[in-house]
Amino acid sequence: MPPEESAVVNDYDLLAESYTAMSDTEIQNAYYERPAVLALAGDVAGRRILDAGCGAGPLTVSLRERGAEVSGFDLSSSMLEIARQRLGPDVDLRVADVAEPLPYADNAFDDVVASLVLHYLEDWGPTLGEFHRVLKPGGRLIVVVDHPYAIHMLQRQAGQETDYSATYEWTETWEIDGRTMPMSFWNRPLHAMTDAFTAGGFRISVLSEPKPVPEAEALFPEDYRMLCVSPSCLFFVLQAE
């Protein structure tokens, strides 16, 4: 019997429990992306932080453990249910679409974290405008995106005639716990990212290509070596001007 397949693209409601279990333990999220975000955020005690596209809330939990006052939103209500179980009823978690106007007041946050979120959007302009609006003057936007050249090379290796200088949609099929799911993302060159940040009223203060945390080497030796020489993500800290 073939695996169950969803006709809906990027259906995290269907994948919520399986995706959460995977991302809690595998190298890409648990030992690479999240530790790097927390290192870039630094001392967050007392800061109001919005976790944009928070999913099941692992990063939100870590930020709160470090003393931040956290809020989060996600398009997937099923992912948010898991986040609520982790964070409890006192944390402001909302169903919202990162591509639409956000349900928060102006100047509400010291920091916005958008980790592996913007790659779902063809046009970053409205979303960056909303992030700028909800940030206090001088607030920080911490962004993690797929490394554009890594995606470009993956597509070329798969036989796709992609142009690194273009902004284009790409798709792949995820297989998790016997389910197959079509997933769609947008890739854009580095200069298009930096142009969008500048147009959105942000100044780049950090551009980082970190390595996984050292303890990942014993757990995932092959993946660890690969990420050390071929980063899969870019990390930005942006200042709202």
Rank of each mutant, 00 (worst) to 15 (best):
R179H: 10
T198E: 05
L190A: 11
P210D: 10
D163M: 06
T173K: 05
A114E: 08
F131D: 13
G200M: 06
S115K: 03
A114D: 13
W174N: 00
E130D: 15
T194E: 14
T198I: 11
A158K: 11
G178F: 05
H152V: 10
D177M: 02
S208E: 06
D123S: 12
R179S: 09
D146N: 15
W170G: 01
T180P: 03
L141T: 08
G201Q: 01
R179W: 11
M183G: 00
D110R: 03
V117Q: 03
E172H: 01
V113Y: 04
G159R: 09
V112A: 07
P126D: 14
V134H: 02
T171E: 13
G201V: 01
D146R: 12
V144A: 09
L135N: 07
Q155E: 15
G125S: 14
A199S: 02
E209Q: 09
P214M: 12
G129M: 10
M193G: 04
A199W: 00
P214V: 14
K136V: 13
P212F: 03
P212H: 06
P126K: 05
L154I: 05
F109P: 05
W170I: 08
D195S: 11
F109I: 08
P210K: 01
E175F: 01
H147T: 05
T127R: 08
Q155H: 13
K211H: 12
I176D: 00
S165Q: 10
W124E: 01
L190Q: 07
W186D: 06
Q157L: 15
T167W: 02
G159E: 04
G200A: 09
F131L: 13
P189N: 15
T198P: 01
V213F: 00
F185P: 01
T162W: 04
G138R: 07
E175R: 11
W186L: 12
A196I: 09
M193N: 05
V113T: 13
R156V: 15
Q155V: 05
M153V: 12
V112F: 04
G200E: 05
G178T: 05
V206T: 12
V134Y: 06
R133A: 10
W170D: 08
D146K: 10
S115M: 01
Y164I: 12
T171I: 09
V213E: 03
D177P: 07
Y168P: 05
T162R: 10
R133F: 12
